[in-house]
C-alpha cells in the first residue's frame, strides 16, 4: 500500500510526441503535505509531467499515481481532488470576478458556494472588485484570482505550473504566503518555477533536464551535494554539465 503513503508517485513515467521523448522514464514520489518544487530549463518536460499527473495527457508508458488513483486507467477520477493552475491565465476575461468563481465552484460542486466564493475573493484581495470584468485586472491580481479559484474546492493536491511568471515581487510574495498556508493545512503542493528564490521556499526539489530527473532533494541537500552556495549555481552547473538544454 505504498501508493497511499505518498500524495504523488511516478514510476518510469514516459511521454513521447512522435519521435520526441518529452518525459523520459521519470520516477519519484511526493510526500503528503509537502511543497515539492520542480525545476528545469524551458522544454525540459516539466509541464508535460504535470499535465500527465492532472489527467489531461496520457502517459506513453510507466505509471503515475495521484492521490491513490492511477492516471492512465482512470484520469477522470483524479480531477475531483486536484487543483491546477498554469502560467497562462485561464479564467474567463469576459466574466466578472464573481461569475468566474461561481462557475468554477459550481463545476466542482463546492458546498456553501456563496461562502467559498466570498472567501476566495477575500484571499485574492479582490474584495470590492467582485463585479469587475476579470480581463481588466492587472496580471498580479489575475494570478491571485486563479490561485483562489484553483483551491476553492479544497483540493488534496495542488499543481502549479509556473504560477508566478510575469508577476511583480510583491504579488509573488503574497502568492507564496497563500501556498504556504495551504501546505500548512495539509495540501500537497507541486509547483514548477524559474525563480530560485521561490525554489528556496520548497520542502524538496527535483531538477529536470531533457526529460529526465537529474537531481532530487531539499534545497540545502542539493547545495551541499553540489558544493554550491546558491540554488542558482546548483541549477546552472547541473543543467550545463550534461550538455545541451534542449
Amino acid at each position: 500500500m505504498t501508493d497511499n503513503d505518498y500524495a504523488v508517485t511516478l514510476e518510469n513515467l514516459t511521454r513521447k510526441f512522435g519521435d520526441f521523448t518529452a518525459v523520459d522514464d521519470v520516477s519519484f514520489s511526493v510526500n503528503r503535505g509537502e511543497i515539492f518544487g520542480f525545476l528545469g530549463a524551458n522544454g525540459a518536460g516539466k509541464s508535460t509531467t504535470i499535465r500527465m499527473l492532472c489527467g489531461i495527457l496520457k502517459p506513453t508508458s510507466g505509471r503515475g499515481i495521484v492521490g491513490g488513483v492511477d492516471i492512465s486507467r482512470t484520469p477522470e477520477k483524479v480531477k475531483s481532488f486536484i487543483g491546477y493552475m498554469s502560467q497562462k491565465f485561464s479564467l474567463y476575461d469576459d466574466l466578472t470576478v464573481e461569475e468566474n468563481l461561481n462557475f468554477f465552484a459550481g463545476i466542482y460542486g463546492v458546498k456553501n458556494r456563496k461562502d467559498a466564493v466570498n472567501r476566495a475573493i477575500e484571499s485574492a484581495g479582490l474584495a470590492g472588485r467582485e463585479k469587475k470584468m476579470t480581463g481588466s485586472l492587472p496580471v498580479g491580481w489575475k494570478q491571485q484570482l486563479s490561485l483562489a479559484s484553483a483551491v476553492m474546492h479544497n483540493p488534496d493536491i495542488l499543481f502549479l505550473d509556473e504560477p508566478t511568471s510575469g508577476v511583480d515581487p510583491v504579488s509573488r510574495r503574497k502568492f507564496w504566503e497563500t501556498i504556504r498556508a495551504k501546505s500548512d493545512d495539509g495540501t500537497t503542493v507541486f509547483v514548477t518555477t524559474h525563480y530560485m528564490t521561490e525554489a528556496e521556499y520548497c520542502d524538496r526539489l527535483s531538477i529536470m533536464r531533457a526529460g529526465k530527473v537529474i537531481a532530487l532533494g531539499s534545497p540545502d541537500e542539493l547545495k551541499r551535494k553540489n558544493d554550491r552556495d546558491t540554488l542558482e549555481d546548483v541549477f546552472v552547473s547541473l543543467v550545463q554539465q550534461t550538455g545541451d538544454t534542449r
Partner: peptide, 13 residues
Amino acid sequence: EIGTMEQIMVTPM
C-alpha cells in the same frame, strides 16, 4: 485558443 480549455479539462466536468 484563449487557454481556458485546459482549466476545464482538469475539472471533473
